[in-house]
Write a protein that binds this DNA or RNA. Structure first.
Length: 127
RNA sequence: AGAGUGGAUCUGGCUGUCGCUGGUUUUCCGUAGUGGGAAACGGGAGGAAAGUCCGGGCUCCGCGAAAAGGUGCCGGGUAACGCCCGGCGGGGGCAACCCUAGGGACAGUGCCACAGAGAGCAAACCGCCGAACGGGAUUUUAACUAAUCUUUCGGUAAGGGUGAAAGGGUGCGGUAAGAGCGCACCGCGUUGCUGGUAACAGUAGCGGCAAGGUAAACCCCACCUGGAGCAAGACCAAAUAGGGAAACACCGCUUUAGCGGGCGUUUUCGGGUAGGUUGCUUGAGACACUUGGCAACAGGUGUACUAGAUGAAUGACAGCUGCCUGAAGCUUUGAAAAGAGCCAAGGAACAGAACCCGGCUUAUUGAUCCACUCUCCGU
RNA sequence: CGGGGCGUGGCGCAGCCAGGUAGCGCACUAGCAUGGGGUGCUAGGGGUCGGAAGUUCGAAUCUUCUCGCCCCGA
């Protein structure tokens, strides 16, 4: 745990194991109720809740309104890939929940990544 | 060469970097035990994984019948089926071939709107024909002579008209006019014979139109089905609240023993939520060869083990290269029409396992192979 | 993943089981009553019943397939 933690602080580790994910319904509810909405655009809504642990975690919600099972899988993979590669830009001591809105199912993966980049650049500096 | 029919298979490949997930091996940390981390190796979506329309396995509940529901030409296959195969009947196509919920309407009940004279033990509106005689009208005649119309009674299902459907069709005879009234052929029903396991087909005799449609209306007949579903079920088991039992302390009754109460404290028990483990992937299986069978399929031998996630993995990026379309231009064959090659650029669908099988249905890109039919040309 | 329900004018609903005329309320248009508006009265327009096949003489209704929406089971 301690070794891996030191690497992640340097921003060189691109792994994304189970420790970095929200794994049950209670964790999601905690972030959505007690956390704060810090970013929003027509494709996503982002929530943040500080938990005190040294490692940041991610939860992704894609409802059935986004599209079929193939489209939902594509959106989830794009969001997780972005979190994995841009993890150093997120704050390290909290949980993040990204909810995809219905328009996210109508664009390509590259467009999803650029939209996430814009919403993160705009809102992380403000916080 | 063109047009078409049926069936089968596949759903691009290779390399690199960064990731996810389960398995095996090694190793590190920690523990009474369960465990946590790292590295290496080799696995990781489909023909429909979909819709959930059927049939099963598996699990729990129930176990007497009935009700309710389903299936429906015949024979076979199958664990079973509403599926598949082979036949029969009907319909379509020049043909290869395709489509077909296809039992029963003399067991019973219901419905057939509108239109039409009549619509379910049928019916006479216009017609056609005959008779009655008397009255009237018109024409005609030497003459109430003849004809037509009108009235009444009767015959008729040929023709018209209505309708989805009007109680067989065509032809000849027959008749006052007509009619299965008679005859021939077709159709229908029925009895036999022949072929076939059967559905049914063929054929002979008889009957004489008696028997309209609708059962995806109720229904009858034959056969089948208990209900729910892996979020089934089994096991482990926090925090909080609540329940049972015991002990201590307290209160009431009582001389004590003891009995009762329930505020409190401690211990303990079982149920059970979050959560976890299991069910969970080796199977009525797949592939190859072979035997039987027209076939579906069945038997035998051999080979390999081939996804198991659970806020839910199977991905992202880059390069090279096959496949398809291919503007303009260039090269080339050719008299021309047109064809071939190079090439920018673009395209590659439908879609994501959730306990597992067998089917059906629906969505869909491109390619390859096999068999067959028709038309044209050449030999 | 599994189990149920609903699609009918602009909106909310009948009609479907038992097949032949698509109707009700609000809304819309026009006229009348009023000095004008509201209100009231009269008249009218607008849907082939989510889509496609089939059964039937005939389908919103019966059967099959399909599309969309909603609800329930942690």
């Amino acid at each position: 745990m301690t070794k891996e933690n030191g690497e992640s602080c340097l921003g060189e580790d691109f792994s994304f194991s189970k420790h970095a994910r929200l794994l049950n319904s209670a964790a999601f509810k905690k972030v959505l109720r007690k956390g704060r909405r810090f970013g929003r655009n027509p494709f996503f809504v982002l929530y943040w809740h500080a938990h005190g642990l040294p490692e940041s975690r991610l939860g992704v919600t894609v409802s059935r309104k986004v599209g079929s099972a193939v489209i939902r899988n594509r959106v989830k993979r794009a969001i997780r890939e972005f979190f994995r590669t841009h993890r150093h830009r997120f704050k390290q001591d909290g949980d993040c929940v990204i909810i995809a809105r219905p328009r996210a199912g109508q664009v390509t993966s590259a467009q999803l990544r650029s939209q996430l980049d814009r919403v993160l650049a705009k809102n992380m500096s403000a916080t």
